[in-house]
Write a protein that binds this DNA or RNA. Sequence first.
DNA 1: CGAGACTTTGACCGTAGTCAATTTATGTGG
DNA 2: CCACATAAATTGACTACGGTCAAAGTCTCG
Lengths: 254, 254
Amino acid sequence: MSMSGNVGVIPRERQSAFAGLNDFRQMDVGRVRTFWRTVERIPAGANIAAEPDSRKRQIVVVSGWISETRILPDGRRQIFAFLLPGDVASINASSHVGSRGLVALTNVEVADASALTVGEQGERISASLTDAIRQREERLFDQIVRIGRLTAKERVLNLLLELYDRLDAIGLVKENTFRIPLTQEVFADALGLSVVHINRTLQQLRREGMLTVGRGTVTLHQRHKLASFACYQSETQQAEGDRQPRRIGALSRD
Amino acid sequence: MSMSGNVGVIPRERQSAFAGLNDFRQMDVGRVRTFWRTVERIPAGANIAAEPDSRKRQIVVVSGWISETRILPDGRRQIFAFLLPGDVASINASSHVGSRGLVALTNVEVADASALTVGEQGERISASLTDAIRQREERLFDQIVRIGRLTAKERVLNLLLELYDRLDAIGLVKENTFRIPLTQEVFADALGLSVVHINRTLQQLRREGMLTVGRGTVTLHQRHKLASFACYQSETQQAEGDRQPRRIGALSRD
DNA sequence: CGAGACTTTGACCGTAGTCAATTTATGTGG
DNA sequence: CCACATAAATTGACTACGGTCAAAGTCTCG
């Protein structure tokens, strides 16, 4: 299964729409031009797979949303992360049965990361990619905490707060509002909840005036309060508190 | 906060106990000798923090169990992963409030990864470290699926199966049995469940003859059946099954 | 206008959490 | 080697968060 979509040059006009990307990774305009030339376009809903030849592959998202997903044999689905412009991901050549897969949630443009790390500015970009990878891992931890220890309300808020910050960083937030091309089902699969419960949770959050949702758009009110309520900490901290060391014992009786 | 424990040379005699480590990362004996010299010993229950000076740091576990943990401001705790001999982890200099922390679950010996990647064999070891890092990420995904989409019984089995495979790979499994220095509370924090429920789940699994637990030891019966029951796949596959593309819609009404 | 995808609602269920008490290790000092 | 202290494992009673099922309502788009 090879990558869906076609390769093409993105018209210059559109560049303005992604202006934020420049700031995000400190890539200079010249570099971004090169960027455009190696961009691949992928239609919404398509799978992003590695070329049959290349074993491994790293991509950078230029525009659009991607989800990293795994589907269990019985149909249950889990979304690990959402990839936004500027994010990096590796594709395992093996996109076969059950692996982690990348799915375009919108029309997407991706660039080959390896193609960006060569040349004069390569090192600089390489560094920002390294940083992107680090952030990516950090987000996986956040995701684990969300589904492992937070309640439904907290999960929803926590994820929305993360998306807010990430989108804000690339200039896609205006007046506490951002576009979010996610289905409630997708949201549910990311947060380990059922669609029905996501729906009810969103309603509750709306009723409580914590957020406004509508037409693919989300507005967060009083982000500070929300953050502390949902145990959210914008890309750095977290609260430690070493619990007193316990005896390291056996799992059980017998 | 600097790394707890003291640095010392590990007596040669003990090396035999970790024979499996050689096979695991294909490190030749000579290299392992160097290994020992840079080993740091950490007592059970202690925190493993970066030296105040070194910004980032990568370590390799030589012996013992470590947990990667985060504690939320309200005390809830989530364990991201368990580190076993041969595993790699990076320590953020900032071991302050709320970050991800490494906690020794047993007496532990760790080596500095960077110290291992220099010299003649450095490249070879470096490669195996890279591989270890890849596996590590893969396991984070497994962890997300576990707590996001599996039931309590499945979670417990799935994790035990993973530990089985990892311990087996380093020669620490005998007759389907392995030692597991985990408290039910630790187990609970890793699987996003309550201690009480972990306890009851273990009992149920015992009653159903799927496993035997006792005195810090676990025996898995009919691993194959357990694996399919718990959606476990030993470090490779997974079942894909692209759900039909849905319309990418808005999150809601209004 | 219809079809299909998505959202919403209601009724009901069940897995897992909470609280609190009890029992069972495990260890330590005398 | 025993008594006591403490961590860990267990149990029971009760709760509640979130899941399931099924039907209806909305929105989009061809």
